[in-house]
């Protein structure tokens, strides 16, 4: 048996000290940041799509649609697939028997995933801004709206992870859930001015974000203003966080 601990270990052991339970989100986030190659690919992948759209003068409606789909996919797939993998590896089993409230587990794993997704979206929007030189208020409000959309999508990914046991199944279910939402948000056809589809689109973040991206790309969306985007961003952030906390229990219950 070793008699002395290396100084770094001893120091770190002291650092743990008494404190609030948890720190799961930090652990998950640090793990994701430590996967250098995966992180580089994750950060580059939205840019590969955003750059040509920003630089080639693609029609704003379609360019905004693609960027919105990208944000939706980033949010849902990132959370849904990584959680399904965690379950497969037995990590969720381990978390389930710790003295941590299920809502806290849900919220913390969601938070870690969301922060990474935010990094992706921020880079992408920064590149768009550099290429398009849009009005700063529009860019900031669209950026915040993207973060709100990521929260909503992340919670959707978490919901899917409560129903699936492997990454492939999760991807398929995400596509099945997300496609109708994107259609109802008017991404492919626009939103009718009246009727049920109009109201459904108001309840989902994707139509707002598409309008925001259109503004950033100097288009003329039929609806939307920075003030409205800020309000929507706040609502969808809260909805995403609350849903993630509520989904903690079913997330841990699966595979019990």
């Amino acid at each position: 048996m070793a008699e002395r601990l290396p100084a770094a270990v001893a120091q770190s052991a002291r650092r743990a000290g008494p404190g609030l339970p948890g720190g799961l989100w930090r652990l998950e986030l640090r793990a994701a940041l430590a996967r250098r190659r995966a992180l580089a690919i994750k950060l580059l992948f939205p840019l590969v799509l955003a750059l040509p759209l920003a630089l080639t003068g693609a029609p704003q409606f379609f360019a905004a649609m693609l960027l919105t789909v990208l944000i939706a996919m980033v949010g849902t797939v990132g959370t849904g697939v990584s959680l399904t993998r965690s379950r497969g590896a037995g990590w969720l089993d381990r978390l389930a028997v710790l003295p941590l409230a299920p809502w806290r587990v849900g919220l913390e794993v969601f938070l870690a995933s969301w922060l990474l997704d935010c990094l992706q979206a921020t880079l992408m929007i920064l590149v768009l801004e550099l290429a398009q030189r849009a009005d700063p208020l529009t860019v900031v409000s669209t950026w915040l709206l993207a973060l709100g959309t990521l929260a909503f999508s992340g919670a959707l990914g978490l919901a899917v992870a409560t129903l699936t046991d492997n990454a492939g199944e999760a991807m398929l279910l995400l596509a099945v859930v997300l496609a109708p939402m994107l259609f109802l948000s008017g991404l492919f056809t626009g939103v009718p001015a009246v009727g049920p589809r109009y109201w459904v689109a108001q309840l989902l973040p994707f139509s707002y974000l598409q309008n925001g991206f259109q503004l950033v790309l100097h288009g003329n969306p039929p609806d939307g203003a920075p003030g409205q985007f800020l309000w929507a961003a706040g609502v969808f952030l809260l909805v995403g966080g609350a849903a993630a906390a509520a989904l903690g229990r079913p997330l841990l219950a699966r595979g019990a």
Binding site: A13, A16, P18, G19, L98
Partner: peptide, 12 residues
């Protein structure tokens, strides 16, 4: 350390 924190700062 993570598990120690969850267990109220137990010594590792």
């Amino acid at each position: 350390q993570f598990f120690a924190r969850v267990r109220g700062g137990a010594s590792t």
